[in-house]
């Protein structure tokens, strides 16, 4: 016979065990896959740059110094200076905050809208499913970059609109994933159990199904964050990027690109390298997360 008082410790330990298992699995994956470990360290580094970078940089990222324009990397300016003599190292570090902000907020936005509507579509089926499906089909039929361009050109080139455009073109990815995962789970045991214990449909959706598919969605998050940064860079190249003089990796690469032929390679190279490392790190991290979340589907 078990007394009621005995139950909580069991649950607690099961939970602790579960967490520990995940943690152990993660450690196992990291050890097995040094690449993921490396990506994770890089990610921490970028987060660090974004949070405390602005206080660490040696120069004011916005201050011009025309006497020092177009200087190659040196002890004073580690990444050299641009056309107006601004310190590229400082600009690259400070830009991390904006770039991560663009990536994270666009992903959060699409995560919320795409995830919710996808789960609803998969769970309820019927009209909800058809509407969400149509929206996805329509967006997918667009050449995505041109859709993003159109949105930013029409609404104006502000950071908010870049975020919105990126979120919209990623919508089908999230909605479809959430839909198929929710669809699989709508008849699962735990859902039936929740329904029998008197939960409303909305509550089942939000409290039971959604948490269940979160881990799989997280993998997508990491992959699309990289894409969001690339997308912003592409928009900068055709003149639809953020307002000057705000430092942003994409716009720095786009502006520096015209200096490559004349030999000032550092203007585009360092922001380009940083941008590449960030996207690279998000992509590798996504792969690694997939391994942790879903060991069977290791790719």
């Amino acid at each position: 016979m078990t007394s009621i008082a005995e139950i909580p410790p069991v649950v607690q330990s099961a939970r602790a065990h579960g967490l520990k298992a995940v943690f152990q699995h993660a450690r196992y994956v990291m050890r097995e896959n040094p690449v993921t470990g490396f990506a994770f360290l890089m990610f921490l580094f970028f987060v660090l740059c974004a949070t405390i970078g602005p206080w660490l940089v040696p120069h004011d990222p916005l201050a011009s110094n025309t006497a020092q324009a177009l200087k190659p990397p040196s002890a004073l300016n580690w990444f050299g200076t641009d056309q107006l003599g601004r310190d590229i190292f400082s600009r690259v570090v400070v830009a991390a905050r904006l770039d991560l902000a663009i990536a994270i907020s666009s992903v959060l936005l699409v995560f919320a809208f795409g995830g919710l509507s996808g789960v609803a579509a998969g769970y309820f089926g019927g009209w909800t499913d058809r509407i969400v499906g149509r929206i996805c089909d329509t967006i997918m039929a667009f050449p995505l970059f041109v859709l993003a361009m159109g949105i930013v050109a029409a609404l104006g080139n502000t950071v908010t609109n870049i975020v919105i455009a990126t979120a919209i073109i990623n919508y089908p990815l999230y909605a479809r994933l959430a839909r198929s995962e929710a669809n699989v789970r709508r008849d699962a045991g735990f859902v039936h159990a929740a329904r029998l214990s008197g939960n409303s449909e909305g509550r089942i959706l939000l409290m039971h199904i959604l948490p269940n598919i979160l881990p799989i969605m997280m993998v997508q998050v990491s992959l699309t964050m990289g894409y969001a940064i690339l997308n912003a860079a592409g928009l900068s190249f055709i003149g639809l990027g953020v307002r000057p003089p705000t430092p942003e990796w994409g716009i720095m690469v786009a502006e520096g690109a015209s200096f490559i032929v004349s030999g000032e390679w550092w203007i585009a190279f360092f922001p380009g390298l940083t941008l590449m490392l960030a996207v690279f790190c998000f992509n590798l991290l996504g792969d690694g997360l997939r391994d942790i979340v879903d060991p069977q589907r290791r790719t």
Partner: peptide, 29 residues
């Protein structure tokens, strides 16, 4: 004509800030 206009406006913005005039740069396609 961003090649000339953009760096020019950044310098103007910086210089006007020194006498207290704060400007936001607006790129018009």
């Amino acid at each position: 004509f961003a090649g000339i206009n953009e760096p020019l406006c950044i310098l103007v913005q910086e210089s006007l800030a020194l006498i207290g005039i704060k400007t936001t740069i607006n790129k018009v396609p």
